[in-house]
């Protein structure tokens, strides 16, 4: 009990940050499921969402700024796919990945230009950023509302994928890209939809994430992005529940390691986990039959 009360703050921070990773990881896992592409720019889209909020909140009230952030992020995600990935659809996978790295470089440099290289202070969102006390631990309300919100969004997403026509098209495209095209699925609109959903969730994730960690810098998206990708691999790439569970596990482990005083190695742990998973269980927790990962 003593251990629990001492570690509860870390545990709660872990669950919260895990939920935020989960929202980013879904974008990775869906894109990878269909295009077999690690969207290196996804973490930077998450960062851009944070910056848009910083600037939007200076000129308009928060209840207008939040929808604007969601819309702008979705548009950016959509445009990135159309401009940088679509022309390379028939190119080797390496070219697309290089293009993704190029987009990441571009977004980071644009952010550097806009911010002038200074860390921007994220605005305090009303209600979400309020300080509350849970089980004797003082924290922000965002810590508590993240897990239910994530579960709600994931449930909605799973419904979308299981029950709707576009969801069926997505499942078909991730099963077999070429055959689904032959079956009359408009592959480009499916891919665009994937990017729209992924960017939307990344925007929600950024709202939650930056309420806790309020400094927005041009490179702030890189690390959460990589960790979310590891979460997606850990859960089994292509599997949405897998990505969510993987993200929670990574978020919690990372914060427990921080709690033990090994902050330096909290990032290292994530990548060590990636390698262990890829070597011993390349399909991840919930992945489908092996393809060419290892």
């Amino acid at each position: 009990m003593d251990w629990l009360s001492k570690n509860l703050p870390y545990l709660m921070a872990g669950i919260s940050v895990g939920g935020q990773y989960a929202l980013i990881a879904i974008g990775y896992t869906m894109v990878y499921g269909i295009l077999r592409l690690i969207n290196f720019a996804h973490g930077d889209i998450f960062m851009v969402a944070g910056l848009v909020m910083v600037y939007a909140s200076t000129v308009m009230p928060v209840y207008l700024a939040i929808p604007l952030v969601l819309v702008v992020t979705v548009v950016i995600g959509f445009l990135v796919e159309r401009v940088a990935y679509k022309p390379l659809r028939t190119a080797p996978r390496m070219s697309v990945m290089i293009s993704a790295i190029g987009v990441s470089y571009l977004l980071q440099n644009m952010a550097l230009y806009v911010t002038g290289g200074l860390a921007q202070q994220y605005p305090a969102l009303p209600w979400i950023s309020d300080t509350i006390t849970v089980f004797g631990v003082t924290t922000k309300r965002v810590t508590v509302i993240t897990p239910p919100l994530v579960i709600l969004l994931v449930a909605a997403l799973v419904m979308l994928i299981q029950k709707t026509k576009i969801g069926m098209a997505m499942r078909a495209a991730s099963k077999d890209f070429e055959t689904s095209q032959l079956m009359g699925i408009k592959i480009n609109s499916v891919i665009s939809m994937t990017f729209i959903i992924g960017s939307f969730l990344a925007a929600v994730g950024s709202l939650l994430f930056f309420s806790n960690y309020t400094g927005v810098t041009p490179t702030v998206g890189a690390m959460p992005g990589l960790k979310a990708f590891v979460a997606a691999v850990f859960g089994g790439i292509g599997s949405i529940p897998g990505a969510v569970i993987g993200a929670f596990i990574i978020g919690i482990s990372e914060n427990i390691i921080k709690g033990l005083g090994w902050t330096t190695f909290s990032d290292a742990f994530t990548f060590a986990l990636l390698i262990v998973v890829l070597i011993f269980k390349p399909t991840g927790l919930f992945g489908e039959a092996a393809n060419d990962k290892v």
């Binding site: 996978r93 990589l226 590891v230 290892v294």
Partner: peptide, 15 residues
């Protein structure tokens, strides 16, 4: 590891 997994793992090790 192969292709993009190698990329992520080496990137991770650099970090």
């Amino acid at each position: 590891l192969k292709s993009d997994y190698l990329a992520i793992a080496t990137l991770g090790f650099a970090e």
